[in-house]
Nucleic acid binder design. Structure first.
Ligand code: SF4
Ligand code: SF4
Lengths: 145, 145
DNA sequence: TTAAATTAGGATAAAATTATCCGATTTATT
DNA sequence: AATAAATCGGATAATTTTATCCTAATTTAA
């Protein structure tokens, strides 16, 4: 609901990598899928997308793994991760999925729903990777179970 | 996003049937899938669910079709239609899909998201079939294109 | 230089969702 | 009674999403 499974994993993975990067630790695929409780091979595919989108960096070989630039994690917003994986459908698609959606061509729930959508978009544009990873780091929130 | 395709069709179909019932007209499958622009056979399956859930009534044979009791349409809420088709996942599942979700076991976006979820639930519990169908009936909203 | 550990990427499989098909049943009309 | 129009319901197909497998390429360390 709202996000695809791939996107859920992507968000959790990104937050976990960012959290590790807080303490200058790199992490590998096994760490990640263990910590966020996700299928390993599938998570690998998602990480590739995030690397291509420039959200996380990766390195091969022994001591390789994934990381996120500390400076970046303050600039990267939740919406960036979502867009990298699910595309921009969160911006354009909506409850009843009309082809054409606007104020003068609304579906029967548009006026009720538009405020919720606005809040949702505001939230994902505001929340940073840094916010989320710090919250996990100090034990205020969890990534699995 | 948010609702499955089946649920989108279900909501639109229900609203259309309710609108027709406003003018004491019954409608058949062909009318419905034409008016909401949905695949006919798939829509038939969804209508069966709605009939079983007691949201719409159906009759077979010539002059058969679907209808909604006028009195009912004031009592039937959007949440009832959603639950009939998608089950109650809208109530229990959430953005990052943790297995256990609560105030003392939150994911990193729980505190931002909980208000949005609350608003969404409030909305679907408040909005009636009558509200939606009247809005379509007087041309304030549309079910396709 | 060899071995081990890692990401990258293509091919494929499994599962879930969406969609179609067809025969059975019901009902009104002729 | 026959016919036509409608829903019902089971079987199946197509598509999309989720998940796995395997090989290649890269990098470190022994
Ligand atoms: S709520 Fe508004 S934007 Fe969303 S589908 Fe309905 S008309 Fe379109
Ligand atoms: S937002 Fe709250 S309820 Fe939803 S997955 Fe996160 S912790 Fe669970």
């Amino acid at each position: 609901m709202i996000f695809s499974k791939a996107c859920e994993y992507g968000i959790k993975a990104t937050v976990f990598i960012a959290q590790k990067s807080l303490n200058n630790e790199r992490c590998n695929l096994t760490d990640i899928s263990d910590e966020i409780d996700s299928p390993k091979a599938f998570t690998a595919k998602i990480l590739q997308k995030l690397v291509k989108a420039g959200i996380v960096n990766s390195s091969k070989g022994k001591l390789g793994g994934f990381g996120i630039n500390m400076k970046d994690s303050k600039k990267i917003k939740l919406i960036d991760v979502i867009t990298a994986i699910d595309g921009n459908m969160i911006e354009k698609t909506c409850v009843l999925g009309l082809k054409k959606c606007s104020e003068d061509h609304p579906c029967p729930v548009h006026n009720q729903f538009k405020f919720i959508k606005k809040d949702l978009l505001k939230m994902v544009h505001k929340t940073t990777l840094s916010d989320m990873s710090k919250s996990v780091d100090i034990g205020l929130s969890c990534l699995k179970i």
